[in-house]
Amino acid sequence: MSLAPTPQVLPAGVDGFLIRFALRPDPQAMAAAQVMARQLETDTPDGAVEVAPALVSVLLRFDPARVDRDDLARSLAARARAIADRAPDAPDALRRWTIPAAFGGEYGPDLADVADRLGLSQQQAIDQLCNTDLHVLTIGFAPGQPYIGLLPEAWNLPRMADLNPRVPAGAVVVAVRQIVMFGAESATGWRQVACSGFRTFVPDRNPPMPLRAGDAIRYRPVTGDEMQSLSSAADGLGGAVLETLE
Rank of each mutant, 00 (worst) to 15 (best):
A216G: 05
E50I: 00
M209L: 01
R95C: 06
W97R: 07
S121N: 12
L157R: 01
Q122S: 14
Q34G: 13
A102C: 09
L120W: 06
P25V: 07
F182S: 05
V172H: 08
R61W: 01
D70H: 11
D70I: 13
P146E: 08
N164E: 13
P88C: 09
Q122A: 14
S231V: 08
A233E: 14
D71F: 12
M1C: 04
R117W: 04
D127R: 07
S196M: 00
F198M: 11
G104H: 03
L111Y: 01
P11L: 02
R66I: 00
P152T: 06
W190I: 02
E50R: 11
S229V: 10
R66V: 03
Q39E: 14
L137F: 09
A65E: 13
D92E: 14
D113L: 12
L3D: 14
Q123C: 00
P203I: 08
H135N: 05
T42H: 10
D15C: 12
L211F: 14
F198N: 03
S121C: 11
G104N: 04
V49N: 02
Y219H: 09
L129M: 08
D92Q: 14
S2T: 12
Y107K: 02
V222D: 03
V58E: 08
A65T: 13
G214I: 13
A154K: 09
F201L: 09
R79P: 05
R191N: 03
D116E: 15
A115V: 08
N206P: 00
G144H: 07
D116I: 04
A52Q: 12
Y219W: 15
P158C: 06
V241P: 00
A216Q: 13
G224C: 05
M1D: 09
Q178Y: 04
A80H: 05
R159K: 09
A73I: 00
Q128F: 01
R81M: 04
A48M: 06
V49G: 02
R205S: 11
P168K: 09
L245N: 10
P64C: 07
V35N: 05
F182Y: 15
S231M: 06
V222S: 03
L23N: 13
P207F: 08
C130W: 03
L157A: 06
A175G: 03
T138I: 02
M227T: 01
N206W: 00
P88E: 09
T132K: 09
D63C: 10
T6V: 12
Q39R: 13
D26E: 14
P146L: 11
E153N: 11
L111Q: 07
T223Q: 01
L163I: 15
L211A: 02
